[in-house]
Design a protein around this nucleic acid. Structure first.
Lengths: 298, 298
DNA sequence: TATTATATTCACGAAAATTGATTTTATCGG
DNA sequence: CCGATAAAATCAATTTTCGTGAATATAATA
């Protein structure tokens, strides 16, 4: 099964016979015949009814042809797509929630500067609710934030990362389960993210845990420090894959199935800078998906 | 540019490095490296930024990757699609306009019986307006008819054939243009098709022709016969490609650009027998597109 | 700076595709 | 029904492509 074989199949259907297809593709008729044979071999199904001359497509043949057409059109579009993907020049106003500000963002901006030097990104920070409003009014071109629960057609969303919510405990702590950990350690509540908090509360009560809440803190970094000093344990989105602040904290699953928060890009459906949006989205997605260390210099 | 190369590209993006992709695909690093090199060569664009190790996708790389993903998913879907395309068993009520009844239909039914013996097609005939109503009420599963000018979302349409409307003149007639022909021959009007008639009238007056109308006849076959006997000339949809009744009449273009009528399949969007509809549509489209003679026996 | 992980290069052998000649099979015309 | 013709299948020889393994080269890491 190769593209050449699909091309042959399409040509046969277009020109009506193996021989005609061969001529159109500058090949021998036997080459076409063998390509079809190979295709049928690998699919385990006859694509043509040889009772007729020229052979006719079987039902299976038309099914395969339909797919072949899609494949070939995607294939042919590649060059066009490449020629449209020329260097971008302009500015882009991006809103970002605090958690991302200190994790995903720096790496992504480095990459972006490398890949698309002509694109200037103006970053501002805020909570998801505020950002959403600013996107709606056009103050921001897009926002990197939590996935809203409801979304009108005026706004577009693209997933960037799924962050697992986990229990973070001191390195020297004992206890394998959330229950054990919160029996032995006070709870440092991370209450910034209004989007995740309810999920955490629900899961806590599902697990039958009533933690000893000792503090409420807004910053993931600050909580990391406190937990590292043995002050208590906390429940946070797992940003450790971003390789920043990879302190030696214990990470324990927070029940099954894991609680996730989805981070992505929100923008207006009718926005102008769709190309820039795609570039930025691609870079953030790449950074989130395949964490790489920051280059020393740039 | 081959599917294997696209697979390599996707694997690299998925597993994060050439080496990891190689392992996943049971190949050597060098094989992957060469595939990428070949891909870049044939596209004329670097897909990876070798300043980094492992190399990072460039912008062009992500563009190609997007296409590669579509291609690969279509590719992988082929087997599923084939296994779903199992022999159909059941009946189907198909309405057909008179013109098709005597041309496309017989050939298509023969093919259909050959390809899908389990599918029984019950054919009934009527004018487009009637058929449309019967499809709406569910008396018919689908209808092969002229394309309606307006179409709600409750009904679905699929194009099957474009028939050119042409001037049909006796074999021994003279005159190269419609004007000349209708100066020398009386006009036999085909008034059955309410859908094409207005177009014909418009074109006639555009061409400044006021033909000597000698008869109005409902049947294309009858008109063919009369024209063949030299009784007059007519203007008809060109069904001669269907190789039936290929009498030796003269066929002359009816002005530029040609007048077309579009024939297709109308059905309810919410119909049950979508699979049968597709099969039938495929066969009619194949018959219309690539006219083949009828087999002697079955 | 040394070490390690990773990618590139190159020559060689293996596998696949193409060709040209030949045989087989359907269709068409008496 | 039979021969003529058009089309496809088959086969051996040849060319092309692909993958490997060893030897570099290059970037990240300690």
């Amino acid at each position: 099964m190769s593209i050449r074989q699909f091309r042959a199949l399409e040509a046969i259907s277009e020109y009506g016979s193996f021989a005609a297809a061969a001529k159109a593709l500058n090949l021998t008729q036997s080459a076409i015949s063998m390509q079809v044979a190979a295709l049928e071999e690998s699919l385990g199904v006859p694509l043509f009814d040889r009772q007729h001359r020229p052979p006719r497509l079987t039902r299976a043949g038309t099914v395969v042809l339909r797919h072949a057409r899609v494949i070939l059109s995607q294939y042919n579009d590649i060059f066009d797509a490449l020629s449209e993907a020329r260097p971008y020049h302009g500015s882009f106003r991006l809103g970002v929630i605090p958690t991302i500000l200190t994790n995903l963002l720096p790496l992504s901006l480095m990459r972006l500067r490398e890949e698309e030097p002509g694109l200037t990104v103006n970053v501002s920070s805020g909570l998801s609710g505020e950002l959403m409003r600013e996107v709606e009014t056009g103050e921001l071109d897009a926002a990197l934030m939590h996935k809203p629960t409801t979304l009108g057609t005026a706004l577009s969303w693209r997933d960037i990362a799924q962050q697992r919510v986990v229990v973070v405990a001191p390195p020297e702590s004992t206890g394998e389960t959330p229950q054990e950990i919160f029996e032995r350690h006070p709870y440092i509540r991370f209450n910034r993210s209004a989007w995740v908090a309810p999920l955490v509360e629900t899961r806590l009560s599902e697990l039958g845990i009533s933690p000893d809440t000792r503090a409420e803190i807004q910053s993931i970094e600050a909580i990391h420090l406190l937990v590292g000093l043995g002050f208590g344990a906390s429940i946070l989105p797992d940003v450790s894959t971003e390789s920043f602040a990879r302190t030696s904290l214990r990470i324990v699953p927070f029940g099954e199935p894991p609680v996730y928060r989805t981070v992505g890009i929100l923008s207006r459906t009718d926005m102008a800078k769709k190309n820039a949006r795609r570039i930025i989205g691609d870079v953030f997605a790449a950074t989130a998906g395949r964490p790489n260390t920051l280059k020393k210099d740039g």
